[in-house]
């Protein structure tokens, strides 16, 4: 496992991502709220570009005391990314498929040294 230079951290704004090829691997690197997350770009469903689709917060529902709905809302504490091929949705913090947490994208470690970002692969 070696650290491979990816990019300058200053080139990564919050919410940005990069898709890189590293030998035989394709990796999606996300920057979300100041933290980096990196996962295999091959969707567990049919191998689609899992990290290239929509990023969206988890949808939850406000319930009043009598259990009637006060509307849906986006839970900013959770963040998902969605494979653009068939909509497999993954948790950005863990790489787990949100409908079945047993399914998990391969996670890569990201190391930041000063202004440089490295992926460990």
């Amino acid at each position: 496992m070696a650290e491979q230079f990816v990019s300058k951290a200053s080139e990564f704004k919050d919410g940005d991502r990069q898709i890189i090829r590293l030998g035989e691997q394709e990796i999606g690197i996300f920057k979300h709220e100041g933290n980096f997350y990196a996962y295999s770009n091959f969707c567990l469903h049919q191998g689609g570009p899992a990290c290239e689709g929509l990023t969206i917060a988890g949808v939850k529902e406000h319930l009043r005391e009598d259990k009637t709905s006060a509307g849906l809302y986006f839970d900013e504490k959770s963040m998902h990314f969605v494979c653009p091929w068939h909509g497999y949705e993954y948790d950005m913090f863990t790489g787990e498929q949100v409908a079945d947490r047993k399914l998990k994208l391969k996670k890569y470690e990201i190391v930041q040294k000063g202004d440089e970002v490295y992926v460990v692969a």
Partner: peptide, 14 residues
């Protein structure tokens, strides 16, 4: 030490 990193695409956040 390892293969070279090739940036395929950069996707700007919202």
């Amino acid at each position: 030490e390892g293969p070279k990193v090739e940036i395929l695409r950069k996707i700007s956040g919202a």
